[in-house]
Simulated assay, not measured.
Amino acid sequence: MDLPWLKSLIFWIIVVVVIFAIFQCTQKSEDNKSASTLMYERLYQCSRDLSAKNPTALKSIQAQIRPDMKQKELMQLINQCRQVNPLATQTTYIKAIQSIK
Results as ranks from 00 to 15, higher is better:
residue 2 D to L: 15
residue 4 P to S: 07
residue 4 P to H: 07
residue 6 L to S: 11
residue 6 L to Q: 15
residue 7 K to N: 14
residue 7 K to L: 13
residue 10 I to K: 15
residue 11 F to V: 06
residue 11 F to K: 13
residue 14 I to L: 12
residue 15 V to F: 11
residue 16 V to C: 12
residue 19 I to V: 15
residue 20 F to A: 15
residue 21 A to L: 13
residue 22 I to A: 14
residue 23 F to V: 13
residue 24 Q to D: 07
residue 26 T to M: 12
residue 27 Q to I: 11
residue 27 Q to V: 14
residue 27 Q to W: 09
residue 28 K to S: 14
residue 31 D to N: 14
residue 33 K to P: 04
residue 36 S to Y: 03
residue 40 Y to V: 00
residue 41 E to V: 09
residue 42 R to C: 01
residue 42 R to F: 04
residue 46 C to E: 08
residue 47 S to P: 06
residue 50 L to N: 06
residue 50 L to R: 02
residue 50 L to Q: 07
residue 51 S to W: 04
residue 56 T to P: 03
residue 56 T to M: 09
residue 58 L to I: 00
residue 59 K to R: 15
residue 59 K to W: 00
residue 59 K to V: 04
residue 60 S to P: 05
residue 62 Q to E: 06
residue 63 A to Q: 07
residue 64 Q to H: 09
residue 65 I to Y: 06
residue 66 R to C: 01
residue 66 R to V: 01
residue 69 M to Q: 05
residue 70 K to Q: 11
residue 71 Q to F: 03
residue 71 Q to V: 10
residue 72 K to Y: 06
residue 74 L to W: 03
residue 74 L to V: 04
residue 75 M to D: 11
residue 77 L to Y: 00
residue 77 L to V: 01
residue 77 L to W: 00
residue 78 I to L: 06
residue 79 N to M: 05
residue 80 Q to C: 03
residue 80 Q to S: 10
residue 80 Q to L: 12
residue 81 C to A: 04
residue 82 R to W: 00
residue 82 R to A: 10
residue 82 R to P: 01
residue 83 Q to M: 05
residue 84 V to D: 06
residue 84 V to Y: 01
residue 84 V to K: 07
residue 85 N to W: 03
residue 86 P to G: 00
residue 89 T to E: 08
residue 90 Q to A: 07
residue 91 T to A: 09
residue 92 T to F: 15
residue 93 Y to M: 02
residue 93 Y to T: 02
residue 94 I to W: 07
residue 94 I to L: 11
residue 95 K to R: 11
residue 101 K to N: 13
